[in-house]
Computed example of a mutant assay.
Amino acid sequence: MTWRFCLMLEPAASDSPLTDFSATFTVVDPAAPALSVGELSTQRGDGIFESIGVVDGHAQEVAAHVERLAHSARLCDLPAPHLGQWHQAVQRAAAECGPGEAVIKLILSRGVEHGPAPTAWVTAATAPDNSRARTEGVRVVTLDRGFDSGAPARAPWLLLGAKTLSYAVNMAAIREARRRGADDAIFVSSDGIALEGPTSSVILRHGDRFTTPAPGAGILHGTTQLSVFAHLEAQGLETAYEQLPVDALRTADAAWLVSSVRLAAPVTAVDGLELAVDRELTASLNRYLLSPRN
Rank of each mutant, 00 (worst) to 15 (best):
R279D: 05
P116I: 09
N294M: 13
E50P: 00
R139Q: 09
L281F: 05
P156Q: 13
L289S: 05
A153K: 12
E274T: 06
I48K: 03
H114A: 15
L285I: 01
S51Q: 09
T2L: 15
R179C: 13
D247P: 01
E280G: 03
A264W: 07
T42W: 10
D183F: 03
V270R: 07
A32V: 07
R293A: 04
L249M: 08
E10A: 07
W3D: 05
S109F: 00
T135W: 13
P215G: 12
A93H: 01
G84W: 03
A70F: 00
G38I: 10
A70C: 13
D184I: 09
L204M: 03
T24V: 08
H206T: 09
R44C: 08
R74H: 13
H58Q: 14
W3Y: 13
V140T: 02
L275M: 07
L9H: 00
I219P: 06
P213C: 04
W86S: 01
G57E: 09
V62A: 02
T126S: 12
V122A: 09
P17L: 09
S41W: 02
A31M: 15
Y167G: 12
R279T: 09
W121S: 02
Q60T: 01
L195V: 05
L69H: 02
L83N: 07
A194T: 02
A182L: 06
G146I: 14
I219C: 02
V112M: 12
L257G: 03
W121G: 00
R134Q: 13
I52S: 01
W86L: 10
T19A: 11
N286T: 08
S72K: 09
K105A: 03
A64H: 01
A254P: 05
D247K: 15
